[in-house]
């Protein structure tokens, strides 16, 4: 029999080994593609582990005349940023309204159930309809149209999250503010908004990431001028002669926002991802 202490040590060792193995399984593919961005095509083809790093892939991606990557990156930033601001703003207002403004229960559940269904439907099912709608309105192939689609695609998740964060604002506070002479709009602005800032941050991080990653609508609703980073990466892989080095460099660059957020906002991301699902 092992002593209790030894048993505990063994358990800890097994757990950490299992977790480190998983860390390796997650990080290795990342490192591999990051390294591949610095390889010449021949190094990739020979799958060399030691190689002379080169900047040529990045130079071609960022500075060559034929590359549109910088535009793509800018498009992605514009779309994700605008969509996040709009989406979180709308969701915060609506979440407060649905929770506190005494809407009939069936209306609230109808909106929530609809947004749940909508959230789970592949975006691909609606791109045809969006396309014809945007053609009719005359905004097809614009960034504006893509922003609108991103907003509506991410609204269900943002609404859901903000509803859970809204629940943590005590109703008593709003009643106290009403007695203190605030109008409904003032209650929202002066009392509710300051208190849900952490929730809005978490929601914004999640919405931004998902918008940054969005591919199905971006693929079908953009042209070369308005395409976003994921579409550009997909195109690298689809050319007749796949440019693995350029693809690796483009992919590595595109993960910058995600990696930055991972390092800075782990807490918000975790609370956003878990709140959305289980609360």
């Amino acid at each position: 029999m092992l002593t209790i202490k030894a048993q505990k040590r063994l358990g800890g060792f097994i757990r950490h080994s299992w977790l480190m193995l998983s860390v390796f399984a997650i990080l290795f593919p990342f490192l591999w593609i990051a390294l591949s961005g610095f390889k010449r095509e021949i190094d990739i083809a020979m799958s060399r582990i030691s190689f002379a790093p080169v900047w040529s892939n990045y130079e071609e991606l960022l500075f060559s005349k034929s590359s549109t990557y910088l535009t793509n990156f800018l498009n992605s930033v514009i779309v994700s940023f605008s969509a996040t601001v709009l989406c979180v703003g709308i969701a915060t207002l609506a979440a407060h309204s649905l929770r506190r403004h005494k809407w009939p229960i069936f209306a609230v559940s109808a909106i929530l159930i609809f947004s749940m269904i909508f959230n789970m439907t592949p975006a691909m099912t609606l791109v045809g309809a969006w396309h014809s709608l945007f053609v009719k309105v005359g905004i097809n192939n614009t960034l504006f149209a893509l922003i609108l689609v991103n907003v509506v695609l991410l609204l269900p998740m943002a609404l859901w999250l903000m509803m859970t964060f809204m629940r943590d604002v005590p109703e008593e506070l709003e009643e106290a503010a009403a007695i203190d002479g605030c109008t409904p709009a003032e209650i929202f602005r002066k009392i509710v908004l300051p208190l849900v800032v952490p929730g809005m941050m978490a929601t914004s991080v999640i919405v931004f990431v998902f918008s940054w990653n969005e591919f199905q609508a971006a693929l079908t609703l953009t042209t070369k001028a308005t395409q976003t980073v994921p579409v550009a990466i997909a195109k690298f892989a689809q050319e007749y002669e796949v440019k693995h080095g350029a693809m690796a460099a483009a992919a590595t660059l595109s993960t910058i926002p995600a990696v930055m957020l991972m390092l800075v906002a782990t807490r918000y991301i975790v609370s956003g991802l878990t709140n959305g699902a289980i609360k």
Partner: peptide, 20 residues
């Protein structure tokens, strides 16, 4: 009449102090 116009004041069970 609006609560704020009734010339009342209320003390709540959980105090309802504005935390910020």
């Amino acid at each position: 009449v609006q609560p704020s116009k009734r010339d009342i004041a209320m003390v709540f069970q959980n105090y309802a102090l504005y935390p910020h």
